[in-house]
Simulated assay, not measured.
Amino acid sequence: MLKLILAPLLVALATLVARRWGPKIGGIVVGLPLTTGPIFLFLALDQGLDFGARACVGILFGLVGLAGFALVYAAVSRRAGGVVSLMASAAAYFVVSGAVNSLALNRMIGAALAAYAALLLVAWLIKRPQPGATKPVSRWWDIWFRMITAAGLTLAITTAAERLGPTFSGIVGTYPVVTTVIMTFTHHQSGREVAIAMLRGTVLSWIGFVSAFLVIGLTLIPYGLTVALVLAVLANLGTTILALWIDRFITSRTKGNPHEFVPARPFDR
């Protein structure tokens, strides 16, 4: 029952926040580990703390893949629609995550540093949203679709955990299914600028995501699940606030000359 209820409720909360406070704040909430968190919790409870600690490495690899997901979406969406952009982004996620995993960076710190570096780079490359970007328009029924999708993913990943193993469970469980669903509707209903505004907020939120699972990976076995989760929440919150403060500071210094997404420019020619 928890697998069927917990993740969908968190997704519904994120959707309502996005509707109320706009794309950037919505993106920040969407970037929270709304599905990965419950998936990790069920893995740790079902498979044991050692399995959960090793899954954190896969989750950190997956966060490097999330940087590839966002970068490809921002580039491809300049010339293609939301569906094509998301298909390319999904492929990039698994390619990047698998490539990082093949480097055998099995140390927790190395995986976390790679995730921090990748996400900070992508946050810098994606242009800041235009002032006054409109809030995403949502239909009454899409929140139910998002909740059903979250429940399905949680059940699928936790069921397949034994076959996938801890690292690949972490990678697959980190796939941004909530972001994928919400970005699909946002891009279609409100346009690319609003979708990119939400995506950039999500990338900034993913930086705190790294801190959360780095802390869990380091503290889960010595201190137990409850303490690790409490410390992870504090680490996630502190890192997200710091990332948003730095982004706001940089924005105020570069006001009037926002970053344009550089890698996509060759496609303009």
Rank of each mutant, 00 (worst) to 15 (best):
F69R: 04
I28Q: 01
G98M: 00
T254E: 01
P8W: 04
G27E: 07
K24C: 00
V30F: 08
P166E: 11
T158M: 00
G58H: 09
A99W: 05
W245E: 09
V227D: 06
F51R: 02
A67V: 12
V194T: 14
P8F: 06
A264S: 15
D46C: 02
D50R: 09
F267H: 06
M183K: 09
F51M: 07
T158W: 04
Y175D: 11
I143S: 11
G224M: 06
F249V: 12
F209H: 12
A133M: 10
K135D: 03
W245V: 15
A114V: 11
E193P: 05
T186I: 07
I196R: 05
M1R: 08
L244D: 10
L229S: 01
K135P: 00
D46I: 05
R54E: 15
T240Y: 01
G81D: 14
Y93R: 02
I207T: 14
G81R: 06
G165W: 02
I182N: 03
W124D: 10
L164Q: 02
L231C: 07
P38G: 02
P176L: 14
A161L: 01
G26L: 02
A74D: 10
A133E: 15
A92I: 10
L41T: 10
L103A: 15
A55K: 12
S169Q: 12
I171E: 08
V29I: 06
T239R: 03
R253Q: 10
L86Q: 02
D247S: 14
L119H: 05
T226R: 11
L10I: 03
G191H: 06
P266K: 06
A150K: 04
L204P: 04
A160C: 13
R139S: 10
G217S: 01
T186N: 11
I25P: 00
L237D: 01
W141L: 00
V227L: 11
V233I: 14
P38W: 06
T15L: 12
Y223V: 00
Y93D: 06
A160E: 11
T134I: 09
H187D: 15
T240V: 12
V95F: 14
G26H: 07
G68K: 00
L229N: 03
W206Y: 12
G62D: 03
A156W: 03
W245F: 13
V122C: 06
P129S: 01
A80W: 14
R139F: 00
Y116M: 05
L49S: 02
